[in-house]
Computed example of a mutant assay.
Amino acid sequence: MWNEPTEKDLVALPRIYETESIAIDEKIIHMHFFIGACDWYAAEYDGEDKFFGYVILNGDLDCAEWGYFSLEELKSIKVKGWAEIDRDLYWKTRPFGEVMKERS
């Protein structure tokens, strides 16, 4: 993985279930990981390996969904043996509703 999050980056995220009472459009997206047309938006972190967030694979918004994804799994993905998932270093923390407006 390029630009792997540091421990300092990770402890800044809310813990799993901490934002459960927040409406989806208002849920804050703290990190963005990407490769090609695939995006992982992290809203919560369990303190060990799992994120809760929104995932869009191959640009397919119709099948995109909220769920859990693993940092270790993201780090292990290599496309064509060399291309790795990257963390967006220019990501500005903002509500999910704004993220989706920007995508349309």
Results as ranks from 00 to 15, higher is better:
F33Y: 13
S76Q: 07
A64G: 12
W66K: 15
G67H: 14
K8Y: 00
S70A: 04
G53W: 03
F96P: 10
E48T: 13
A12F: 00
F51G: 04
G59Y: 02
H30V: 04
E26D: 13
D25E: 14
E4M: 05
V79K: 11
K101G: 02
D49L: 12
G67I: 13
G59E: 04
G97T: 10
D49N: 11
M100N: 09
P95G: 10
E4K: 13
K50F: 00
G67N: 12
K101D: 11
E84V: 08
G36K: 08
D60Q: 13
A64D: 10
A23F: 01
E102H: 11
R15G: 11
F51T: 07
E102T: 11
I28C: 00
F69N: 02
L74P: 02
I85P: 07
E102V: 05
D60I: 09
A43E: 07
Y54C: 15
E48Q: 15
I28N: 04
K101L: 10
V55L: 04
E48V: 14
K75F: 00
C63Q: 05
K27S: 06
E98G: 08
M1H: 02
E84G: 06
F33G: 04
I56W: 00
K8P: 03
T19E: 05
T19D: 03
F52D: 12
E44N: 08
D9T: 14
I29R: 02
A43I: 02
L10T: 06
D49W: 05
H32P: 14
K27W: 02
G97W: 06
Y90Q: 02
K8Q: 12
S76K: 14
S104D: 07
W91A: 03
I77R: 11
K50L: 15
W2V: 02
F52C: 10
E18W: 04
K50P: 08
N3Q: 12
G67A: 13
E73M: 08
K8C: 06
K92G: 05
E4D: 04
I28R: 08
Y17C: 11
F96Q: 11
V79L: 12
F96K: 10
E65K: 09
L13I: 08
K50C: 14
E65C: 07
A83V: 06
D88C: 11
P14A: 06
G59M: 03
C63D: 01
M31I: 14
A64P: 11
A83I: 09
I85N: 11
K50M: 15
E44P: 04
L61Y: 01
D9Q: 12
R103S: 01
E7F: 07
K78D: 00
E7T: 14
A43H: 09
Y45V: 12
I28E: 00
A23D: 05
L89T: 08
I35L: 06
I16N: 03
